[in-house]
Write a protein that binds this DNA or RNA. Structure first.
Lengths: 167, 167
DNA sequence: ATAGTTGCAAAACATTTGCAAAGTT
DNA sequence: AACTTTGCAAATGTTTTGCAACTAT
């Protein structure tokens, strides 16, 4: 089970759905139609998204297969707990990305086009560990976002939206 | 004008109030009693705070010198624009710290006692710049928080509050 | 006088929760 | 049957905004 993406391929032994099932069982939780549908949606594309954009992709309130707002939020939380998605806060709301079977990485955030660009740096991880150990701090995780302007936006001076100030 | 603090002293040529006055003038904004009072309050102690905790320190709604909620939010925004305060989001709300005359730094965040520990690393800055330049990205700033458990909490197994999961 | 500022209450956001009905095991 | 999940609406917590009265320049 190999995937191509911007940071290379990773082999995983279980599909996200299988892993999720396992998680649910281990917690006495249940697999349901809405969860299945959301999991599919979330894994249909490899990109960053937030609750709102996920909801927009779903059938409208009147249509069949519609899923309530609260259910979406509850499912996202479960996916994060299950290790399927990684969550971080950006400009006030939660942003999600694939975690399961995908390598750890950090982000460059273009405040002009609001694109998130992923990067990996082994040196960074080592540095963080050494900083932490100087403070006798046990690292649980980290969050790093470098904000600025991406190459495309610098060149085209394009501003699809007014830039955001704080990240 | 030198201050002692955890990251050492920094000399600045103007007081925060002077710098703020200059900022206001350059923008056609005005110095007022509430802003003056808030600036004093904010610079009376060197520590991290949020809007709510700042409001709690002010005279109550019935007392003299009371300042409305909205005014506090508006003033904090101005202080950030003026370069007096640095703002970042933590566990859902905005957290502020002194910026003016204070060295750039990043944080270790203890998810047990919720303490923010400052650290400085020149190597980190260099690393971030080199990552960015590999992507031809113009850096505006960055935000890094290493979350985990601080030395004190590890030792005492103390948990003043239930740990927060996501930062 | 002119234009920015204040405080209040209401609005705006993103997310969470109570609860009765519906779905899973 | 026992227990979890869903969807709705209402509640939450934080921050913003409309607006009339007020204040600095």
């Amino acid at each position: 089970m190999a995937e191509e993406n911007s940071l290379g391929s990773v082999d995983v032994s279980q599909s996200p759905a299988e892993r999720f099932e396992e998680f649910l069982q281990s917690r006495g939780k249940r697999m349901t139609q809405p969860k299945r549908q959301l999991l599919d949606q979330v894994y249909s594309r490899h990109e960053h998204f937030d609750a709102e954009s996920l909801i927009e992709q779903l059938p409208a309130a009147s249509e069949a297969g519609h899923i309530g707002r609260a259910t979406v939020y509850r499912a996202l939380k479960e996916f994060v707990e299950a290790g399927l998605l990684r969550e971080f806060k950006l400009a006030g709301r939660s942003v999600y990305e694939h975690d399961y079977g995908y390598p750890q990485h950090d982000h460059l955030y273009c405040t002009q086009c609001r694109e998130l660009i992923e990067f990996q740096s082994e040196a960074l991880l080592e540095l963080l560990n050494s900083v932490a150990s100087e403070h006798r701090f046990r690292v649980g995780g980290h969050r790093l976002i470098i904000s600025g302007v991406c190459e495309d936006c610098r060149r085209s001076q394009r501003r699809s939206r007014k830039p955001v100030d704080m990240v």
